[in-house]
Simulated assay, not measured.
Amino acid sequence: MVKEDGTILNYDYINGRRNVDMINAGKILFDVYEQTGNPKYKKAMDLLYNAMMDHPRNSLGGFWHKEVYPWQMWLDGLYMASPYLAQYAQVNNKPELLNDVIMQFLIVEKFMRDPVTGLYFHAWDEKKVQKWCDPVTGLSHHFWGRSIGWWYMALVDVLDFVPENHPLRDKLLVIADELARTLPEFQHDGLWYQIVNLEEREGNYQEATASAMFMYAVAKAVNKGYIDRRYNKIATEAERNSA
């Protein structure tokens, strides 16, 4: 998959193919490079970093989800790129990159969190022109369980690389705590629905993947001390009812 010059098979981030979905799998390169010392893996890590530094952004510095999805931020995009970039920042001593990663979360929290429910809308179009968005807010209309799960997993995974003395760490911890307080309000028999707040909607259903994501994020956040241990009940109920 990785050639001697660090290029990655079938990965082309030029010619309109810049896409944050392509970054997440690169996390394995850190372990492979540490175990083998083969410089081609370091070159591949640098390739992915450089691709993201060349990735299009909105006016606030938030990464577009894809080059072909202009001005759009999606919750799942945070999971696809941010943990990789946070680890790259730690390994290569790039505090400015870590600040960039944290900024992505703060942008999403400001523009995509619903103050009424505490949930997050799946996507936001800064230009407010997409057919799927609200013409006033630029937000999509629904709370998609999987996307919130990706967002929450991204948050707790990135926190692993944020030093305890970082000035913005507490803001990330507050975001983690707020979502942990919100999730039980929409948990039914331990699980969550595909559209989280529309459990009565015909065709909606309890979604295994979203529930697994929430279980992982909450359990890890508790075990790492990012949120209070009382929230562990959320994860244990999900585990018990998913069996």
Rank of each mutant, 00 (worst) to 15 (best):
I14H: 13
N19A: 04
G26K: 00
D31F: 08
P39R: 07
K40S: 09
K40A: 08
Y41L: 02
Y41G: 01
L47H: 12
L47P: 01
P56G: 05
G62N: 00
V68F: 15
V68K: 15
Y69F: 14
W71I: 01
L75R: 03
D76Y: 07
L78C: 04
P83V: 00
L85K: 04
A86L: 00
A86F: 01
Q90Y: 07
N92M: 12
P95V: 02
L97Q: 00
N99F: 04
M103H: 08
I107A: 04
V108F: 02
M112W: 04
R113M: 12
F121M: 13
A123C: 11
W124D: 01
P135Q: 07
V136L: 10
G138R: 02
S140W: 06
S140M: 08
H141G: 13
R146E: 03
W151S: 02
Y152A: 04
V162T: 04
P163D: 03
T182C: 12
L183T: 10
E185Y: 12
Q187H: 12
H188E: 08
L191G: 07
Y193M: 11
Y193C: 13
Q194Y: 15
E199A: 14
G203T: 15
Y205K: 07
E207C: 08
T209G: 14
A210E: 03
A212F: 10
Y216F: 15
A217Y: 06
V222M: 10
R230S: 15
Y231W: 09
I234D: 00
A238R: 06
A243G: 13
